[in-house]
Nucleic acid binder design. Structure first.
Lengths: 365, 365
DNA sequence: CGAATTGATGTAATCGATTACAAGTCAGCA
DNA sequence: TGCTGACTTGTAATCGATTACATCAATTCG
């Protein structure tokens, strides 16, 4: 190894090498590694010994060519990073490996074209596909390319006819946290939504509206401002909301990153949280609990999102292999309310100690 | 599609189907898709038309079986999440795809055994391998299994003889931030290190010691406490440090997650940052800039770490394919000092506005 | 004792591509 | 007209496995 890569490649042992060394046919070697039919104990042990000595392991490409099973799942993700991303990936990965499957990942897709080209080149490499659909036309776009490949969509933006899916209870989550604000006495509650046309954003806004309707809060378009899920857009949105008269007493922000911007805007203009205005977010990113005051938000279990997607996908893959019919399902993961300090308490006092009470340790890297 | 998966599988078109439909041989179809030799324009177009109509794309398994190239890179990662993880993955992914390569990811490895078994089953699936080595024995463990597969280690804990590597300038980074503290007037500086035996941790501690030595600060083992890179361990370590007499005037924490715990401990005991004690971290996680006060730390470019690893790996893969000899390299990525409020300023005043000055917007998901 | 059964193993087709080599067509030229 | 060479295209071997089927030896049983 010390001489770099100039040496002739010590080509990996194949099934033939093992067969020759062990004095048996390739069929027997194959049988030992697949224990389909019975091989005598002696022969099996001899083959296994030779295989170990030669560091032999069946070539995956050859194997999947003949069996047309790859034991690999494709994963298509939009360009994103941070905790949401890594949580989902972990859920996918852990679940896949627990079942002996690999993950062929292609993330960072800007648009549908890139996604389709990645998908196309996965042909023959995967048994199933998990797609986090970045935009509305994605499901339709991939349909032609998956043919007989099972697909599960994560948090589908563009509806999910024709595919299984796992998504987040956006409507219920928003409804829940806005109801929480109303229980605290707020009636004039603004919202900063995600980008128009984004289904998550729309569902969260609908949840917000419904909660207001039920609780008799102020329903008005001037209280709804669209951001784009980024911190700066939250900052800008809050600046606009502060010009309202009368000013809202609470803001439900469509995701935590925008809430970061909202808090910054408030800090800059000297508006106190939660005394002057209550702030609530969505997603429960790690930073949420370290803000001053810590952010009340809806927790989304990203790991579970990934895990369920793979669980479901493997179920479909197996059923398909056995020719068993299977119904399509659409799972919705609940979000849970995490109360911290940014919304105050019902007795009017800010709940500053929540930062500690609600602290959940995270792993380092 | 509406009837679920009960229908007979509409098997994907193969090269034979295209050949038959286009009235040519499979060799010609193959040539069109690989433009090795010249095919007449008419024939090529005809083939391409048929291929499009049949949604044909070469089967990757078959192709890589005969060419022994997979256009896929294996990625082995330890069990971790958060930004560090997703940053590295993005760097790997973007760079790989830019070069027409896929990523076969297997993360969340608890130990060397799991890692080796994942590695083994990648046989025949990958052209090269990126490994983030979780512990000291990993490089030795994988050596037997990679044979002629090129490998690049990311941030190798266990040294890197025999492999190319890309790592972080831990020593220099720690040296740099501790020197910053000394420039601010601190002489009695404690440190919370990562787990003993972890090379990152050791390098950072060495950088801390060297900076103290050069600047004439207090060098004492009582000022060094080992954590395990998690938030709770930082909390515990700070509690211990506060019992010291005289108390240190500054703490260099081995990573930001532990710094979170340190800050929490300080907040609980009423010790003010940076007035009573200065705190510095390492990694620059997103939360760092949202703390009160915002955390001074060393920024590590995780994306670049992944990107360089893949760049290097592809270089080796290409060189190997062409039989060109190539030297092993060990790249070290610099970390950069990010000054925020947690260390105060040289004139003694805390720099509370740094939170805003130093704000860098992040993408939402 | 010979036929039938059982168990272990080998032979060869197969998966879907790539590619060396062979072969065929056609134009140009003596 | 016949030969040469340039292009284009086809034939068939090959990659490394799996697996249906054949084969062969040993055992069982009427």
């Amino acid at each position: 190894m010390a001489d770099g890569f100039t040496a002739a490649e010590p080509t990996v042992a194949t099934i033939k090498d093992v067969a020759r060394e062990a004095g048996v046919s390739v069929a027997t070697v194959s049988r030992v590694f697949n224990d389909r039919t019975v091989v005598s104990a002696d022969t099996a042990q001899a083959v296994r010994d030779v295989a170990t000595r030669l560091n032999y392991w069946p070539n995956a490409a050859a194997r999947s060519l003949i069996t047309s099973r790859t034991h690999t799942l494709g994963v298509l993700l939009p360009d994103m990073h941070g905790e949401f991303f890594s949580g989902v990936i972990r859920g996918l990965d852990v679940t896949a490996r627990r079942n002996g499957f690999h993950l062929l990942v292609s993330s960072s897709h800007a648009g549908t074209d890139e996604l389709v080209s990645a998908l196309r080149s996965m042909r023959g490499r995967i048994d199933g596909l998990v797609v986090m659909a970045p935009n509305v036309e994605t499901p339709a776009a991939i349909r032609d390319w998956v043919a007989d490949t099972p697909v599960v969509l994560i948090d589908p933006r563009g509806g999910y006819e024709g595919f299984d899916s796992v998504s987040i209870a956006n409507f219920e989550g928003a409804h829940s946290i806005v109801s929480h604000l109303m229980a605290l006495g707020h009636r004039r509650i603004a919202t900063v939504t995600g980008p128009l046309g984004n289904v998550d954003a729309a569902q969260r806004r609908n949840g917000y509206r419904e909660a207001l309707r039920e609780g008799g809060g102020d329903l008005s378009l001037e209280l709804e401002i669209a951001g784009d899920f980024t911190e700066p857009s939250g900052h800008a949105a809050m600046a606009a909301l502060l010009k309202l008269d009368p000013r809202p007493t609470a803001v439900f922000v469509g995701n935590d990153h925008m809430a970061l911007g909202v808090m910054r805007s408030l800090a800059e203009t000297g508006v106190r949280v939660p005394e002057d205005i209550a702030v609530a977010g969505f997603d429960d990113i790690e930073t949420a609990r370290y803000l001053s005051p810590p952010l009340t938000t809806m927790r989304v279990d990203t790991f579970e999102l990934g895990a369920r997607a793979v669980d479901r996908l493997l179920l479909i893959v197996t059923a398909l292999a056995q020719g068993v019919p299977i119904e399509r399902t659409h799972q919705v993961l609940p979000a849970t309310l995490v109360v911290r300090g940014s919304c105050g308490t019902s007795n009017g006092k800010p709940a500053t100690l929540n930062a500690i009470r609600n602290h959940i340790p995270h792993h380092g890297r």
